[in-house]
Amino acid sequence: MKILVTRPSPEGEKLAKILNCIGILSWHFPLFNFLPSTSSISLSKKICELYKSDIILIFSKRSVYYTNLYLNENNLHWPLNPDYYAIGNGTAIFFQKYVKKKF
């Protein structure tokens, strides 16, 4: 059996290494990576939408990390009004550090 790990770095690399250590041949080939934006079309252009949202879906720890970094650097906070939904228990636990709200 061979496993193709598509999870972004560094989590994907760690998973592939663990699988290889237990004898399951695996390769790490991420479909995408998360990096801070250097684009002129950045979160700063979309921040109003964050505060107007009724529902916010959280898909990854990295998206939470970089969004929170931006908010902190700009003296902003996660909005409390929207309903939050996280994809994955680990993502939900990670996100709960930043928003003190049940979701």
Rank of each mutant, 00 (worst) to 15 (best):
Glu49Gly: 11
Thr67Asp: 01
His77Arg: 14
Ile18Arg: 14
Ser9Asn: 15
Lys102His: 13
Trp78Glu: 01
Thr91Lys: 07
Glu49Asp: 11
Ser37Cys: 06
Ser37Lys: 06
Lys102Pro: 12
Pro8Val: 09
Cys21Arg: 13
Ser9Ile: 11
Phe29Ile: 14
Tyr51Lys: 00
Lys46Cys: 10
Ser60His: 02
Ser37Thr: 10
Pro8Ala: 03
Ala92Ile: 07
Gln96Asp: 14
Lys46Gln: 11
Leu31Phe: 09
Tyr85Gln: 11
Leu19Lys: 02
Tyr51Asn: 00
Leu76Lys: 04
Thr91Val: 09
Trp78Arg: 04
Tyr98Gly: 01
Pro36Asn: 00
Lys102Met: 11
Arg62Asn: 15
Phe103His: 05
Tyr85Asn: 13
Phe29Glu: 14
Ser53Trp: 02
Lys46Asp: 10
Leu19Arg: 05
Tyr98His: 12
Pro79Ser: 06
Ile22Lys: 07
Phe94Cys: 07
Phe59Ser: 11
Pro30Cys: 01
Phe95Asn: 08
Lys17Glu: 12
Lys102Tyr: 11
Leu71Lys: 00
Met1Lys: 13
Gly90Phe: 13
His28Val: 05
Leu50Gln: 06
Thr38His: 14
Val5Ser: 02
Arg62Trp: 11
Phe29Tyr: 15
Met1Trp: 05
Ser63Ile: 04
Asn81Trp: 10
Val99Lys: 05
Lys45Gln: 12
Phe34Gln: 04
Val99His: 07
His77Ser: 15
Tyr70Pro: 02
Ser44Glu: 14
Leu69Asn: 13
Leu43Phe: 04
Glu13Gln: 12
Tyr51Val: 00
Phe59Gly: 09
Met1Gly: 15
Ile93Phe: 10
Leu31Val: 08
Ala92Asp: 08
Lys46Thr: 07
Glu13Asn: 11
Glu11Trp: 02
Ile24Ser: 04
Asn72Ala: 09
Arg7Lys: 06
Asp54Leu: 07
Ala86Cys: 15
Trp27Gly: 09
Ser26Glu: 00
Lys14Arg: 14
Lys45Asn: 15
Lys101Thr: 11
Ile3Glu: 10
